[in-house]
Measured scan of single mutants.
Amino acid sequence: MADYSSLTVVQLKDLLTKRNLSVGGLKNELVQRLIKDDEESKGESEVSP
């Protein structure tokens, strides 16, 4: 898992935009949104054959 907390808000928003996720909120919220997306993506890849 990436260390999103070391990134700037601009970098976080860029990552969120690329994933089609909301870019609104405080830095901590942006980090949590990326972590949640990582976990959901990981779960999907494990279920797929």
Rank of each mutant, 00 (worst) to 15 (best):
M1I: 04
A2P: 07
A2H: 12
A2I: 15
A2C: 14
D3L: 08
D3V: 08
D3Y: 14
D3P: 09
D3F: 11
Y4Q: 00
Y4T: 00
Y4L: 02
Y4V: 00
S5Q: 10
S5A: 10
S5T: 07
S5N: 15
S6Y: 07
L7P: 01
T8R: 04
T8P: 08
T8M: 04
V9M: 13
V9K: 10
V10A: 15
V10R: 14
Q11S: 05
Q11P: 01
Q11E: 13
Q11G: 06
L12H: 00
L12A: 02
L12V: 05
L12R: 04
L12W: 00
L12D: 04
K13A: 04
K13C: 07
K13V: 11
K13I: 05
K13N: 09
K13R: 10
D14R: 09
D14E: 14
D14V: 08
L15G: 01
L16S: 03
L16W: 00
L16V: 04
T17C: 11
T17D: 07
K18G: 07
K18A: 12
K18E: 11
R19F: 00
R19V: 00
R19Y: 00
R19L: 00
R19E: 01
R19H: 00
N20L: 08
N20K: 05
N20Q: 09
N20E: 10
L21M: 05
S22Y: 05
S22K: 06
V23T: 15
V23C: 12
V23L: 12
V23P: 11
V23M: 09
G24I: 13
G24N: 15
G25F: 01
G25S: 01
G25D: 01
G25K: 01
L26T: 15
L26M: 12
L26C: 15
K27H: 06
K27V: 02
K27G: 03
N28F: 06
N28E: 06
N28C: 05
E29P: 01
E29K: 02
E29Y: 00
E29A: 06
L30S: 04
L30P: 05
V31R: 07
Q32M: 08
L34P: 02
L34G: 03
L34A: 03
I35L: 11
I35Q: 11
I35T: 12
I35N: 08
I35H: 08
I35S: 07
K36L: 09
K36N: 12
K36F: 04
K36C: 08
D37P: 01
D37W: 09
D37I: 03
D37M: 03
D38S: 05
E40V: 11
E40W: 09
E40D: 14
E40G: 15
E40S: 14
S41T: 07
S41F: 08
K42T: 06
K42R: 14
K42W: 08
K42F: 11
K42M: 11
G43K: 14
G43I: 05
E44F: 10
E44D: 09
E44L: 11
E44S: 13
S45H: 14
S45A: 13
S45R: 12
S45K: 10
S45Q: 11
E46M: 12
E46G: 15
E46K: 10
E46Y: 04
E46S: 10
E46H: 14
V47I: 13
V47A: 11
V47D: 15
V47K: 13
V47T: 07
S48E: 15
S48K: 08
S48A: 06
S48R: 14
P49Q: 15
